[in-house]
């Protein structure tokens, strides 16, 4: 073993220092917007530029919930994205399982085809999608109006395809489903069939096999697929913008956007507070899913 000459090791240290310095700079550069968001949201008199607040206050947050419809936006966002995520987890769990276990010839073509949905920018599909949903919506309206009369509008707020929760939930779920299906299919590929067969030999019915064996085993995969679906749907702005118009259906990003567009002066305090509220669920979702993602199931195979 040879000893590195002193000059070389010094070089190493210097190289390391350079690397750390560069990385730190990049990190700070990335972190500053978030930092600004955080402190500005507590600043009684927030400005466009980063500054230390003169007075710390919750007034911005109070304004979001008292003066604006912040609570409703938050609920709408959580409800729509949460439902879409739930839908994606159920469908990708079942579908991923089926895709993993089937030997059908169309399996690969199908998998690539659905991935195409993900690759195509949804913006390009906005017009036909809108047209399609509008037709569905009108048909639903025509069906419901004779039965429910004036209550139809209230029902359609939940079940409508345009300007209703259902339409947005379905479209968001559709956009997220391909990736989640792939995740779950790959996950189930790695899960030996022995588990199900052992359960079958033990006399488990189909429902018992799913509930007591497959779902617990699939939790890490479901967490991953749900997390990706949630984060991606949570960040989506275009679809709610196009599909929702009623003020009471606005989601957080729409509320944020509209607050930003107001003609009179820009209220940075309100905007940053809103933005911060918008960030929190994504971070919470990440923290929640992380537990399952890192959970290694080292059971079963090999000693």
């Amino acid at each position: 073993m040879s000893v590195a000459p002193p000059g070389e090791s010094a070089n190493c240290v210097r190289g390391d220092l350079m690397a750390y310095a560069t990385l730190s700079l990049i990190s700070i550069f990335c972190a500053i917007p978030f930092f600004w968001l955080l402190i500005a949201s507590f600043d009684g008199n927030a400005q466009l530029f980063l500054r230390w607040p003169e007075t710390w206050t919750f007034a911005n947050y109070l304004r979001v919930f008292a003066k604006e419809d912040g609570a409703k936006w938050l609920f709408n966002s959580l409800f729509v994205v949460g439902s879409a995520t739930f839908l994606v987890m159920v469908l990708s769990g079942l579908g991923g399982y089926a895709l993993s276990r089937t030997r059908a010839w169309w399996k690969l073509p199908f998998l690539y085809a659905i991935l195409l949905i993900r690759v195509l920018p949804s913006t390009a599909l906005v017009v036909p999608l809108y047209k399609f949903l509008l037709t569905l919506n009108n048909a639903e309206g025509a069906l419901l109006r004779p039965i429910f009369g004036s209550a139809t509008r209230d029902i359609m707020r939940w079940t409508g395809f345009i300007d209703g929760y259902l339409g947005l939930i379905l479209v968001l779920a559709t956009m997220q489903l391909p990736l989640s299906l792939w995740i779950m299919k790959t996950f189930f590929d790695g899960l030996p069939r022995d588990y199900e067969e052992a359960a079958l030999m033990d006399g488990a019915t189909m429902i018992q096999r799913i509930r007591r064996v497959l779902v617990p085993l699939a939790l890490p995969g479901l967490a991953a697929s749900g997390l990706f679906a949630f984060m991606s749907a949570w960040g989506d702005f275009l679809l709610p913008l196009i599909l929702l118009s009623s003020p009471e259906l606005q989601t957080l990003p729409l509320g944020l956007f509209r607050a930003f567009l107001r003609i009179n002066e820009i209220d940075y305090g309100l905007l940053t507070a809103l933005a911060f509220i918008y960030l929190v669920p994504a971070v919470v979702a990440f923290g929640f899913a992380r537990r399952f993602l890192v959970q290694t199931f080292s059971g079963g195979v090999k000693g």
């Binding site: 067969e197 052992a198 085993l217 199931f297 059971g299 079963g300």
Partner: peptide
Amino acid sequence: MVFQSYALYPH
């Protein structure tokens, strides 16, 4: 049946 992988449920 005892499986080669044992197939013990890890949860």
